[in-house]
Design a protein around this nucleic acid. Structure first.
Length: 178
DNA sequence: GCTATGATCATA
DNA sequence: ATGATCATAGCA
């Protein structure tokens, strides 16, 4: 939750350098919207029902990616935030295209599609790549806003969604930007 | 083994 | 409001 706020404005980079591949592919986007999921105390969190093959990474060391497939067609990217043994993550909901993005990154599904992130990146170390989160080179000032979470039924009213107020790339069915 | 379902999005 | 589409979880 501290992390969710801190991630706003950071640069999400995916350098897709395949061994044996010819040229390096990479893309970068500025995070403009995040959503926090607490651990076993949060009914909306995947970790709520305890450790499973899918959620084990949530209980692992922080700084790792938790990627899963939703609705059979979209991926969601999370950052594990809590210490090893404790669950907790931040869902990256939207980003502003920064470089080499193909298409929009407004929304969890679109974001992963634009950055070409999939199940292969699950449990990968976000400090070592291929997917990394970096400090912005030129930091623009912005105002952080908070709102209820989106797209869930349980505990949706929790004010755990953070976004950059007024940013055009923030997602939300109702265009919640301020 | 089998079935229900979802932290979504595009289309009508 | 509905459909696309499949990994996961829960149950038999």
């Amino acid at each position: 939750m501290e992390v969710a706020r801190a991630l706003l404005g950071k640069i999400l980079v995916h350098s897709d350098t395949g061994p044996g591949r010819g040229k390096e592919r990479w893309a970068a986007a500025r995070i403009v919207e995040t959503e926090a999921y607490l651990g076993t105390n949060d009914p909306a969190a995947h970790a709520y029902r305890g450790v499973t093959p899918r959620t084990q990474v949530l209980f692992g060391p922080p700084g790792h990616a938790y990627v899963y497939l939703i609705y059979g067609m979209y991926h969601c990217l999370n950052v594990v935030t809590e210490a090893d043994g404790t669950a907790g993550c931040v869902l990256i909901r939207a980003a502003e295209p920064f470089a080499n993005l193909n298409g929009s990154a407004s929304g969890p599904g679109r974001l992963t599609r634009a950055l070409r992130i999939d199940l292969a990146h699950n449990a990968s170390d976000l400090t070592r790549g291929p997917v990394t989160i970096r400090e912005p080179a030129t930091s623009e000032k912005f105002e952080t806003a908070v709102s209820p979470r989106i797209g869930i039924r349980e505990a949706a009213d929790w004010p755990l969604r953070f976004y950059i107020r007024g940013n055009l790339h923030v997602s939300g069915p109702r265009g919640v930007r301020d």
